[in-house]
């Protein structure tokens, strides 16, 4: 089941980034673009195995930076940091609760842009950050928090649609096997 995530999650990342870059109305309406990648990384850290998480972080961040004016590799470290923290603590996060998913997603949605900005300032760039930035950060955090449960629902639906459940052996076949032995 988890092996399919290795292919499905990078594909979802590609589609999410495409939608994020094409949709202009969130920025015009609420003043900020919601980042889809932190939420997907949180989903992968809570639900998938390590290779799938690594694939989302690596491919997602490179694709995101290719679409942006940010230097290539800028989002790699923040996403890896957030993904590693959540993955290593996923036993103590109640990952099946909406509230927990929302909160972890919201924290990641705020932490990733902050870490990216920190790197940009360290590199000597001049990003457009003003008094309006706290609002943008809040929008990104809430948006990311809401996206995590959505990703859970989407992947659940995809698994139900495309993957066959493993058939449990019934009582008769078990008995037959016992007689043979």
């Amino acid at each position: 089941m988890k092996r399919s995530h290795l292919i499905a999650l990078p594909f979802i990342a590609l589609l999410s980034l495409y939608v994020e870059s094409v949709l202009a109305w969130p920025r015009a309406l609420i003043g900020a673009q919601i980042a889809t990648l932190p939420a997907l990384v949180i989903f992968a850290a809570l639900r998938s195995d390590f290779p799938a998480l690594l694939a989302v972080i690596l491919l997602g961040s490179l694709w995101r930076d290719a679409l942006s004016a940010d230097p290539l590799g800028l989002s790699l470290l923040p996403l890896a940091a957030v993904g590693a923290v959540v993955y290593s603590n996923r036993q103590i996060i109640v990952g099946d609760q909406f509230y927990a998913r929302f909160m972890v997603g919201a924290i990641a949605g705020a932490a990733v842009p902050l870490l990216m900005l920190l790197q940009l300032f360290t590199l000597g760039r001049e990003p457009l950050v003003g008094w309006f930035f706290p609002w943008q950060l809040a929008v990104m955090a809430v948006g990311s928090g809401l996206l995590v449960p959505l990703y859970f629902r989407l992947v659940d639906w995809l698994e139900q649609t495309f993957l066959h459940p493993v058939a449990a052996p019934n009582a008769r076949s078990l008995r037959r096997n016992q007689i043979r032995r």
């Binding site: 495409y18 920025r27 900020a32 673009q33 679409l67 942006s68 004016a69 990216m116 943008q136």
Partner: peptide
Amino acid sequence: SRDPANWWRTLQ
């Protein structure tokens, strides 16, 4: 498309 980052004003 437009820049996914909120701190740049670029488009493709």
